[in-house]
Each structure stands twice: as C-alpha cells, then as structure tokens.
Design a protein around this nucleic acid. Structure first.
Length: 287
DNA sequence: AGGTCAACCTGAGCGC
DNA sequence: TGCGCTCAGGTTGACC
C-alpha cells in the first residue's frame, strides 16, 4: 500500500510511540531485504533515543540523538506493526487478524522502545529496505539525492511542475511516477489525480503546462491531503471481523474500477497498461 | 540522454 | 481441494 499518504500515516503512528523514547533493542530476522541491511545496523540504533521521525517522499527517516538517521522504505508490501503490551495495532493499513497472527514469518526487523512496546517491520515481498545515514550526509544519500520536490510543499505549484515536465516526451502518467520529477506519488494517486484534473494519462508530459499544470497540481495536492486525512482516521481502527480492507478504496474514483461507471459521465472506466503498470481512467472525461 | 521493461519476491484471487 | 496463471501500493539496472 505505501504511497506518500500511507507513509505519512505510518510516520505519524510511529512518532506517537517512538519519539523521545530509547531504542532498547533491535532484532533482525532477515537481512536480505531489497538491499542487504547494512552491517552494524542494530548496534547503530540500540541505546539511542529517537528524536523525531520524518519523511521524504516514501522514505521514513528515524532521527536519532547522536546524529544517526535510519532510512526505511516500505516497498510494496511493507508494514509497521505497533505491538504494545499484548495489544497489537497496525499503522497505516488494515491487517486481517489471521495475517497479523501469521505475520511473524515476515517480520524481518523488530524494534523495542521500552514499556513492552515493539515496532515490527513486516514485509512479505521484501521490496522494502533500511539503511543508515547521518544528519550531515542525509541530503547527499544516494536514495534521496535525486528525488524531486515534495508535492505538498507550497513551492510545488503549476509552474514548478511544468518546468520539470518540459521537454519530456513520455506520457504524463509515467512522468508523475518518476520520483525525480515529483517525489512520493504512486500508481493509485496518479490515476486519481489525473482523473480529477481531467487529463488523459497518455498525454505527453510536456503538454502539461499553464492552466493544465495548475489544475493537475491542485488535484494532486487535494487527493494527497484527503488520503492522509483518511489514513489518519484509520490509524487506530481495528480490523473488522470480516477482514474488510480499507476505507481508502471507497474513495477511489477510478483506481481498480475497470468497467465501473465513470463518476463523471457514467461511461465505463478503462484499464490500460503503461510502462508495465495498470492505468485506470475515463477516456471521455480525461483529455 | 531519454525512455521502456524485466526482475526482484511472496501472497491473493480467479478459472478450471 | 488443488493447480496454474495473473496481478499487486515500488524501484532499478539493463537494454533499445
């Protein structure tokens, strides 16, 4: 699930239980994530206090009191599960009760923060990763250095987006998924924002400028803000007995809705594949 | 240089 | 019940 809003939701959840607390232990069950967990990862964190938890794009940043920064990416299937004194809750996503119980198999890294509270990183597909950096070297870290602007920053506006799309022949859908153009967007919110802005995902990126760029930026910000708000509301939510997933999916207007009537015109939502990813859109409403 | 695509890995859902 | 196939919220390295 993790795109920017989900990662932000996870960040807030982790901040609530980790900020100001010492990391009393780190247990690693598997080091072979997308990249191998760096040597000395456990030692670098253990005994340190978490000053704050930040986010850059889809990366979580654990700022420690000695200037160490742990970088965490959730990949496609990564979750952070907070486990406090018996009660277990998931941050940023719903988890089926059975999955939560069986989740141990994929809990690759477990942080203890005292008071019996554990933060478990669970990631079945192991596309997630963790790395170490420092406050001084963080901006130049290879994972972060090339990232584009944060879409929710005030400085990110229509002209800023248009400037980054100038000369790009690639479809706007692919351009928005490129983290160097804008950081933090994923397949769901790109589809939703393009629908909201009335822009075809196939349109050449360079043609998105002027009023179109203004509308697209407004749509992107709106969908991200709404999703973060919805994510926040699911933060403490318990899994329904039926294991029903997400609040989020009820607000999707095109994503995953192939064949459903377009909320705008009633014609069926189409699905196409662009650069290997599904794109959902309305060919009548989106030009 | 820019763009496209398979590969990384596991699980869920669907058709038969 | 089970098998086999397709697809999945991301990133990247190899290849046109």
């Amino acid at each position: 699930m993790p795109e920017l809003p989900e990662v932000e939701t996870v960040r807030r959840g982790l901040a609530a239980v980790m900020e100001g607390r010492p990391i009393t232990g780190v247990t690693v069950r598997r080091r072979d994530l997308r990249r191998p967990l760096p040597a000395g990862f456990e030692q670098a964190l253990t005994g340190r206090t978490v000053v704050s938890i930040g986010r850059r794009a889809k990366y979580l940043l654990l700022h420690l009191d000695d200037g160490t920064v742990a970088i965490v990416h959730l990949g496609m299937s990564g979750r952070m599960v907070i486990d406090q004194a018996g009660g277990r809750e998931t941050v940023g996503d719903f988890v089926h009760p059975a999955a939560a119980l069986a989740g141990g198999r994929h809990e690759h890294v477990v942080f203890s923060v005292g008071n019996g509270t554990m933060v478990r990183f669970s990631d079945p597909r192991r596309f997630g990763l963790m790395d170490l950096s420092t406050e001084e070297t963080l901006p130049a870290h290879p994972l972060l250095a090339a990232l584009g602007p944060e879409p929710l920053d005030d400085a990110f506006d229509g002209p800023a987006l248009a400037a980054r799309l100038a000369g790009k022949k690639t479809p706007i859908k692919a351009a928005l998924l490129d983290q160097r153009v804008v950081a933090g967007l994923g397949n769901i919110y790109v589809c939703e924002a393009l629908f909201s802005a009335g822009l075809s995902p196939r349109r050449g990126a360079h043609t998105v400028r002027g009023a179109r760029a203004d509308h697209l930026v407004a749509a992107l910000k709106a969908v991200l803000v709404d999703a973060i708000a919805a994510g926040g509301s699911t933060l403490r939510d318990h899994v329904t007995p039926s294991g029903e997933i997400g609040y989020f999916q009820y607000s999707f207007r095109v994503y995953g809705r192939e064949g459903d009537p377009c909320p705008g015109c009633g014609r069926p939502i189409a699905r196409i594949v662009q650069s290997g990813r599904s794109t959902f859109f309305c060919s009548a409403c989106q030009r």
